[in-house]
Design a protein around this nucleic acid. Structure first.
Lengths: 273, 273
DNA sequence: AGATAAATTCAGGATACCGGAATTCATGAT
DNA sequence: ATCATGAATTCCGGTATCCTGAATTTATCT
């Protein structure tokens, strides 16, 4: 098998790339010309594909002829297999945690070199986080839950992710590689992550991994709150019930398999954005 | 070739149909053979398409060779144009409402003959709703928010939706057409919907429309709670602050255009499910 | 382990896809 | 308001690539 036959993409893959272009562009919509350019195809081709996407409810034409992703994505995303399974399994835990702690709880899952926010339940305190909303993506290693996942990957995978993510982390104001590695070691040893680095002023959080039967991290639960609400008194309590829910959740997971291969697409996609 | 496909669909549209098949099937994944059958294409064709979809991160192969939708849908859905705009604009309102009322708040938006749940913020009380989770879909007319939208569509559109949805509503245990029409008239007159019909025992709710500059409903805010929490004392208060937030939200909307055409696809899609 | 069924690969032939050119439509300037 | 510019859409021929049937490999069940 040759590794580098990435040149000839099928027409379907080219069309799917259009969806990514739309997703990464202005939410208000993109002009056909710019879409064609970004996707690297001719204008008539982009037009025809977008017509088909629109006819199937995946794209729509907003005012000013601009194209953007359509609502049906919500409906489909709600039923994405792995996601909905984990989500449904985790939701009661999120609700319990939020009710008990009165803070915002996140469910993160690994996806390639990123952690994706699958669900979150809001607490009464307004918080800021890297993860952002449901569907939000952060590089593995940035944020408590994301770090907790990275810390509990098999060594070789962890190494590959670190290599790939270091530049991305630096871009976002993260600490240097040495600090990351020591944070990872500590996280794996103690089984949880708390906010050592005050990357977002005034905010703090705790993340714990959800491990599968082989001890690999498939997801993470984390709490995001105001720094003042995570003092030395409260921290142990928060860690304890987070871990308890994470373990209960792990027990509920079927022979869950997470996509472990690194899709070659990721490299170009991430680099390009 | 094959017997008259009245309309010859492009290969792209056939591939997108595969995604719908995956979304509507077992979240754990579907077998290639069943996918091919459901999509109406040959097995090798389905295989090749699924390979492409997987390479682009839209599908993945779970254990047992089963195919299912992959996580990237979450990421794309989070950036769907109209959705993300409305969501971001509405989120502060949802948080305020949830904090003030201590109940679960929904943001619904119209999509063809359905209302789609764009966002929801949980309250402390466990509730059941038609809408379900984010991404959930209900026929227009079913549930308070959904009814509030339908009640405030232009007459001709409302009529078209009613015609189309009556069978769907009856299927789900909804009242007859006459009751629906009187509920719609009342809803439009008073500007809000409360739970007259106890379709879900013990649950109650209030919905208000979010109107655009032309007075058409583009979305709805609703609260879902326990029936006992919506007594005569509290109801006026709830209605008042819901309406206040809905009006503030309407003011923030750009010249928002919602897709008003009825995609021909909807008919077959809905009918088939 | 053997038998059955599904998943995947392969190759030829035809379809429908692609891109350049022309036309219609929208946008901005004078 | 009219014109000029640039974008969006349509058209059409050449050909790339997509589809189907058959063969091979892989998984599943008794």
């Amino acid at each position: 098998m040759t590794i580098a036959d990435s040149d000839s993409t099928s027409s379907l893959r080219r069309a799917l790339k259009l969806l990514r272009v739309l997703a990464e562009g202005d939410p208000e919509g993109l002009r056909l010309k710019d879409i064609a350019e970004a996707a690297g195809c001719s204008q008539p081709t982009a037009h025809r594909m977008l017509q088909d996407l629109a006819a199937e409810g995946f794209a729509e034409q907003a005012a000013g002829k601009r194209y953007r992703l359509a609502l049906d994505f919500y409906v489909l995303a709600a039923r994405a297999g792995q996601a909905s399974g984990l989500r449904d399994a985790a939701r009661p835990a999120l609700l319990r945690l939020s009710a008990t702690l009165s803070d915002t709880i996140f469910l993160l899952v690994r996806n390639g070199f990123d952690a994706v926010c699958l669900d979150r339940v809001e607490g009464p305190f307004p918080i800021r986080s890297f993860t952002g909303d449901i569907g939000g993506k952060v590089p593995l290693g940035l944020g408590q839950g994301s770090l907790a996942i990275l810390a509990n990957l098999p060594d070789d995978e962890q190494e590959a992710v670190i290599r790939f993510n270091i530049p991305r982390l630096l871009d976002r104001g993260f600490l240097d590689e040495a600090s990351l590695r020591s944070a990872l070691a500590q996280a794996r040893a103690q089984g949880w992550v708390n906010t050592s680095t005050g990357l977002i002023p005034g905010m703090a959080g705790v993340g714990v991994p959800v491990l599968d039967a082989q001890g690999r991290a498939v997801a993470a639960l984390s709490v995001g709150t105001l720094a003042e609400r995570l003092n030395a008194d409260r921290l142990p309590h928060v860690v304890k019930i987070l871990q308890s829910e994470a373990q209960a959740l792990a027990g509920k997971l079927n022979p869950f398999d997470v996509a472990l291969r690194y899709p070659s697409r990721s490299l170009s996609t991430i680099g390009g954005s």
